[in-house]
Write a protein that binds this DNA or RNA. Sequence first.
DNA 1: CTGAAAGCGCTTACAG
DNA 2: CTGAAAGCGCTTACAG
Lengths: 342, 342
Amino acid sequence: MTLTEEEGAMSRPTIVDVARAAGVSRATAARVLAGATNVDPAMAAAVGREAARLGYETNFAARVLRGGRAGAIGLVIAFDELGGLSGTFFTAVMKGAAKGLSAGEVQPVLLPADHEDLDRIPRFLRSGAIDGAIVVLQHEITHLVDRLADSPVPIAWVGRPRGEIGPDPIVIDSDNYGGGVLAARALVEHGRRNIGIITGPLDMEQARERTRGWTDELARHGIEPGPIVHGDFTLDSGTAAMARLLQRVPTLDGVFACSDLMAAGAMRVLQAAGRRVPTDVSLVGFDDILLAAANDPPLTTVRQPLEEMGRAAADTLLGAIRGDDVERVQVLPTSLVHRESL
Amino acid sequence: MTLTEEEGAMSRPTIVDVARAAGVSRATAARVLAGATNVDPAMAAAVGREAARLGYETNFAARVLRGGRAGAIGLVIAFDELGGLSGTFFTAVMKGAAKGLSAGEVQPVLLPADHEDLDRIPRFLRSGAIDGAIVVLQHEITHLVDRLADSPVPIAWVGRPRGEIGPDPIVIDSDNYGGGVLAARALVEHGRRNIGIITGPLDMEQARERTRGWTDELARHGIEPGPIVHGDFTLDSGTAAMARLLQRVPTLDGVFACSDLMAAGAMRVLQAAGRRVPTDVSLVGFDDILLAAANDPPLTTVRQPLEEMGRAAADTLLGAIRGDDVERVQVLPTSLVHRESL
DNA sequence: CTGAAAGCGCTTACAG
DNA sequence: CTGAAAGCGCTTACAG
């Protein structure tokens, strides 16, 4: 037996089948199914009964074609994110977003963005299969930003993209500048003076803002900012960056790593070099992903409310689609989580 | 400006717009766009040019309603999987599947399965938004299996589900029995005699098969199987299970944990109890996820070819949808990866 | 080789 | 309150 035959055998009932079984017109059946109240109760009951009996389910394509909602929202995710241990930043955001969408009776649909076919995601957004999308800015995905600028479907950005993203975008961000300030202040108040920073790629607004907050706060304390090295937020890049930092400033006594993954990588290098954390060198991370608490020693870090950010992105996007008057730009607060690396 | 107005302004061109611009009929435009060759070259060129100029994209809903393919395949994933560090088993399968789907010009669409709304996924499969689904069996998802049995859309299972899943299902599995044999043999040949097993939940075929292979192989060597304790494949459950095992058999010198995560949890308990791995106790895991190599000491483990399994699921599903004659049940080999925990 | 027409399943404006 | 009808955008069997 081929699959095609199987599918044919299971062909789905339409609203016409329901209407016929209930002895009413197609229009009446549609009204009942749409929840209209101005329908004869007996008819309504019959329609409800027959729909349940037949296992009727509204045809997705027909509803969308008619001009309705697809009832699905895309969540764009870097394909590479799928392969490694580093999925935790994205997954926290994802979790919040999925909760918000589920609460709104909307199916969350994750869309892995492929390096090799940059046009697949924009094409999918144009196809009408989803009502909108949430894009979590990650380094691997920056090249997608421009291509999504003229999306026919509304997009909620988590993190503030650089460059053109159309008029009046929905942006959910955290206070990166304030986070940089918190990290610098914590290190300074701990008596650290030879402080370096491992920041992210220059083409990401998050990295620039964190660095700016850190530099400004150091200046306020009359401290010369130490060397700045760059990673790409991954653990391996933190390892490499820490090695460079140590080479340039052997007397280093404090490091601000702009992601927990980079902080974890940095810590390995410090330990391998015989520096004790936090006795010899204090280390502050950023994000507060699960790894931060699981690390040994547990990481002091600047917390971004990732799950809340995902939730806010979902709620704001759904509101905008409904036509509600929503707060299109939201900056959620960051905070310092004290653990043992400082 | 409200969002609705924005959307209206960007309304998409239809095939009628393309046909009119190219000065041909709708039918001819459709033929060109579908890649038909028996069309006047001048007309074909005009259609191609105008479609590109207008940024035409086939309307998803209309194509599906007409009876065509949605061009998307769902990948069902346990919602909880999104939150933690344990995403690696699923993500490896996912990665392979996404590659296979992309190669087949199909959009992979991840569907998080929610505990609280068990009907959302089946409903989505019934809606016609996707052409098929890949379901990776995980403990948190077992309750979904029955509800997906009468899916109108073909499903490829990764892992063999227990219970009813319709006639002639597509099942991509690994040789769990053989993997259990490999683990037992490795421990025995290393001179271990007081061997315990931390297996998975009894309602999962994988756990039963691994245990069966392990028991049979021990019997072949004339060794009485040690105590069997159960976890649910997570790290925390491995911790708890190891504590119980140690309590029951203080002289334990070997452990087979049926997932790398449980092995990692078990190792922590062993080390906390002052047992050195592998000097005092040998430990063999299962899966060969990234964590296995990253663990300290690196984990000797039974490898499942997770990415290949995902790829096979995608290729087989797409073949079945196309109507090809495919190998509907595939069991991929497991192998022992020697590292340092044995 | 090309075009006019039917129909996929749904919802809603319109007529009664 | 209810039903007949139009139309969303597409593809393909049919007629020329």
